[in-house]
Amino acid sequence: MSLALSLTRYRRLIMLVMIIALVLIAVEMTGLREQLSVSFLRENLEANPVTGMVIFVLVFVVGNLIQLPGWIFLVAAILALGTVMGGVVTYIAAVTSCLVTFALVRGLGGNALREIKSPLAQKILARLDTHPVRSVTVMRMLFQTMPALNYTLALSGVPLRPYVIGTLLGLPFPITLYCLFFDRILLLLPIG
């Protein structure tokens, strides 16, 4: 690998880190982080389901970029829309968030993980190359929309189509389990 290619790779990764840091700083400085609460999301979903859903999806995307756990969004959606519709809206927001993160990270960082010379990394990437849809599906079932997974998959060089298919197939199961779990928990809590 040439020195110029290596420097370009590092510049892309540095730019990616800088953009994510800027998003995090913007969210902190604007006070949006304090607004990212179950009650805020619930109020928006209840007030107007259409604009509430758009806000919900946008906040989910930003939240995922700044490392907020997805269960916050799921609880808000269940409280506002019920278990089934809350799960559906969360699924749509989760898929959208994964795709936006993939596009942003891949666009800025390329497939930087392919440059790692570790035998373990090469073995993992080879397995991902052999069974990309199955690998993404299993990872989504285990780690859902975890930002670290989104970043890793985007930088791994996995093609967009297997990424999308694996994401679409892997998210329903854990979201359904979380919906059932939080539905049961919320039945026990005195929430209005």
Rank of each mutant, 00 (worst) to 15 (best):
L7I: 12
T8Y: 12
T8F: 03
R9S: 12
R9L: 11
R11G: 12
R12D: 13
L13I: 14
I14E: 00
I14W: 00
M15H: 09
M15E: 10
V27D: 01
M29E: 10
L32P: 07
R33Q: 07
Q35W: 05
V38L: 09
F40T: 07
N44Q: 12
P49F: 07
P49D: 05
V50M: 12
T51Y: 15
T51E: 12
G52Y: 00
V54Q: 05
I55W: 06
V57C: 05
L58T: 09
L58E: 04
V59Q: 05
V59R: 04
F60C: 02
V62F: 04
G63H: 04
N64Y: 02
I66M: 11
I66A: 03
G70E: 01
G70L: 02
W71E: 14
F73G: 06
V75H: 01
A76E: 09
L79Q: 04
L81P: 00
V84W: 02
V84P: 00
M85C: 03
G86Q: 04
G86F: 03
G86C: 08
V88E: 03
T90E: 09
A94C: 11
V95A: 09
S97W: 01
C98R: 13
L99F: 08
L99R: 11
V105R: 07
R106Q: 09
R106G: 06
L108Y: 11
L113M: 13
R114T: 15
E115C: 07
E115H: 11
P119S: 15
L120M: 10
Q122H: 14
K123H: 14
A126V: 02
R127K: 15
L128K: 07
T130L: 06
H131L: 12
H131D: 15
H131W: 08
V133Q: 08
S135N: 10
S135C: 05
V136Y: 03
V136K: 02
T137N: 03
M139C: 07
R140T: 00
M141N: 13
M141F: 13
F143E: 09
T145L: 08
M146A: 11
L149H: 14
L149I: 13
